[in-house]
Each structure stands twice: as structure tokens, then as C-alpha cells.
Design a protein around this nucleic acid. Sequence first.
DNA 1: CGGAATGTTGATATGCCTCAACTAAAGTGG
DNA 2: CCACTTTAGTTGAGGCATATCAACATTCCG
Lengths: 241, 241
Amino acid sequence: MQSWHDILIRKLTEHSLLSRPDIAAIRRLPGVLRHIDKNEDILRQGDKPKESLVVLEGMLARYHNAPSGRRQYLSFHIAGDMPDAQTLFLERMDHAVCAVEKSGIALVPHTAITNLFKERPEVGFALWKETLIDAAIFRETITNNSSREPEMRLAHFFCEQYYRAEKTGLVKANMCRLPLTQTQLAETLASSLPSISRTLIKLRKTKTMEFDNGHLRIFNWNALAKIGDFNPAYLHLEKPK
Amino acid sequence: MQSWHDILIRKLTEHSLLSRPDIAAIRRLPGVLRHIDKNEDILRQGDKPKESLVVLEGMLARYHNAPSGRRQYLSFHIAGDMPDAQTLFLERMDHAVCAVEKSGIALVPHTAITNLFKERPEVGFALWKETLIDAAIFRETITNNSSREPEMRLAHFFCEQYYRAEKTGLVKANMCRLPLTQTQLAETLASSLPSISRTLIKLRKTKTMEFDNGHLRIFNWNALAKIGDFNPAYLHLEKPK
DNA sequence: CGGAATGTTGATATGCCTCAACTAAAGTGG
DNA sequence: CCACTTTAGTTGAGGCATATCAACATTCCG
């Protein structure tokens, strides 16, 4: 009998060591399950939510509304992630959260979470660490979009998504879900749609990966990581001692 | 008699409400003062520090070493900032920290800080909030470098630096320190040096600001904010209730 | 079956990067 | 204090890459 708590616990223990009482306390968190349709907004810029969400299945994205109507995607989130953890301490959303495919989430009241932190500081530290990794990913995105050539940039993005999916146990037969259109890739990677299309064709020719029909398949991880200058250190997911 | 603690307390109370006992507890934090030369690295990628730093004066920067030797600056930090707060929970540095001018810092042992969090959770929440604002700034940087035209991008950057300096009390006569070379601006804003030079000349012609000799002077804030599409909401610095 | 969304390809133009020369200012050492 | 070196900034020329516009192909979905 798996409850939504296990998905969160699994994610936190990817990088943090939690005691049995810590884990038991997490299990007592109240949560309401909800389904989100593809392309539905869950939070909008300016919202002041009173609960945070845990992704249970599917994929969410965070984005800014950039000048001239362009959408700038900032990050993508899979099972176990809490993409709006910041709302615990930052009142207003400075960006939006949407579902890029049909997804399931759990909603947890802020008060329940912060009370848990006071009772069990180590749980707070684990979630804090999660938000710090989040920030590390944003930093890498700055560098990716600002300093890497288009082919490298795309390869790096695929590596990151695949690596995180793998750590979460969502890779089967060298394949993970990545339900993005090329338009969305363009709005993520500071490129235009035709540019992404051509770069993708170039990448395909390296025979290191395939991206098609919402799935990412890896044929040669080492070669792809090299093309993308990908070093997973910034994800801070080494097993805790 | 101002001690380094006051600089940190001032920063935290910019956005968080701390009780008298909270503040008293912060004042008991041990700290070692240090001076850093211009262009000196304080932390390098891969380092595993056992203390965190508080900027007391001057300016620090964080950066990645990007492909082909390029340096990618990620953020800049002034008095009160704790640019390596993440090292409390992330063992290894995924980026470097350097001084962009002669600076003064205080070094505080991790154990002292985390013990304080356990004793006084609200202090932990305040510093957590600080790291979440940090992440919000990174997100805005992604959008700035990925979705805004060069002139807008530069104007937005100036607005952000000025606004933060203002909140920290470092603006005098519509002017703040910003000791960056054009080369560093280029390595921050995903541009080349000649491009920055020309964009800066264009910006100067708007008569909204001047950037010269390590100083940023604002003549027309509203006009510059408009050029830069700058909305300070993402800095989350409204006074706490 | 029709319409919308998605992806591919081509033509064109322009904006920015690279390279390079030069100026100006600042820092260094004799 | 001045000569020298280094660093910083400006300007110009040229070429390439990618954005934009547009047409078309294809798939998905109602």
C-alpha cells in the first residue's frame, strides 16, 4: 500500500539521511490528492497559496511570462518534486506552475509543514537541501543558456532530464518520459523552433539518443554527456553517508 | 559599536520578522573576520567548506567555468549577503566564489549555524527565505539572458543591482558602487565585450543612467525600469507585516 | 473526415560574434 | 616622477549563425 508520502520520502532520502521518527512524522502530513490536465496552470504569477504541492505522477513545469508574449520555461518536475516549496516562505508566486502532461499531485497545508520543521528540524533541513539543489539547477541553466552552443545546450538538457528521471526510478530500458514539444524546448533553451528542429536532427545523427513522441531514449550515455559537457555534480545526488 | 552581526541581522530583517530572543541568539554566533583581495577566489568548484561567509563590505561574485574557458558569472553579492549559505547542506561547491573588489567577510562555522536553527527555528526560516530569494534571482537571470534583447537585458541588470543596493542602504545621491568591467558584464549577460560596449553607449543615450568608473548612477529610474522590463516583485523585499 | 497542432525545410536578412587596430587610463618599477 | 606595461574601452570590417517568415508535410484529435 503506497501512499503519496512514500514518493516524497523516496525523493528526500535520495540525498538526505532521515531517522525513523523523522520518516514517521512525514507520514503524518495531511494531503489532498488532485489531478491536473495537460497544459493546466496550477499556480500563476502573483498567487498567494496556503499549501505546497508534491508531484506524484506526470510532469510539471515552471515558467515566466517574458516580454513580447514569449514564455520562458525555467524547470521541469517529476514524481517526488515539490516545485513550489518556496511558497512556504515567499508569499507571492514570482512565476507560474503548469502541467505539461496529465499529472497527479498532493496538496499539503503550509502550517502542517512548518510545524513539522519545528518538531523535527532534520526534516526541514532535508527539504531545505531540496530547494538548494533546485537553485543549483537554475544556476546550471543560466550557464547552459548563456555559455553553451546550441547542440551542446540541447544535449546538456537531455542529460539532465534523463539523469534526474533515472535517480527517481523513472527510466525503463534506457528510456524516460519527456513530454515536451519542440516549441517548448525552444522556450526552454533560448532558441527558436526551427533552430531546435535543426539542432535535434544534428543530435540524432550522433546516434547517442532519440527524442520522439514524448520519450527520450539514450543509446550512448557517455558520448551524449560529452557532447553536452554534462557533469552531474551540480545535482548533488550522491548517496548520503 | 557595530559588530558584523548587525549587518547580517539588518539583511534578514529586510524580509523576515525576528523576535528579540532570535536576534540575541544570532548575536552569539562566532565569526572570524577576513579581508579578500580583488579578484581573489574564496571558494572553488569542488571545495568542501566547513563554514559559511557573510559579506561585510565590498562585492563578491559567484561563477561557473564554462566550456572553452569562458567564465559565466551567476550573481553578485553585497553587505549582509551569505552567498555560500548552500554549503550548510550541500557538501561540495558546484561553482566558485570570488571578490570583484577588495572585500571584507566574516566566516561562521556550519555547526554553530545549524545548532542555532535547532534552537530557534525562526532564524532558520529567515535564512531559508534568503536562499529562496537567491533562487528567485537565478530564475530571473535565466529569463533575462534567454528572453530579453541586449539593451533590455543590460537595463534589467542595472535595475536589479541598484534596487538591491538601495534596500541595503548602499545608495547615496542616486548612486551605488558596481565595480565591474565591461568584460565581466559580458560574462554575466551572455554577450561579447564589443556588444556590451555598444549596448552601453545606446543606453547612455537614453539619459536614464550612467555607468562609469565602478559606479552606477540613476537619472530616471522609471524610464530605466521600463526599458529593462524590471519588476522587483521577484526580489520579495516588501516589508514583512 | 476536417481542423488544429506539430515538425521539417527553405529563403532571406540582420544582428552579433570574431578578429583586429587603436585610444585612453591605470598601475608598476626603476 | 616619468617610462613602460598592462588593462579597459571604443570602433571598424567581415562573415556566419540564427531569427524570422513562409510553405509544406504529418500526425493527432475531436
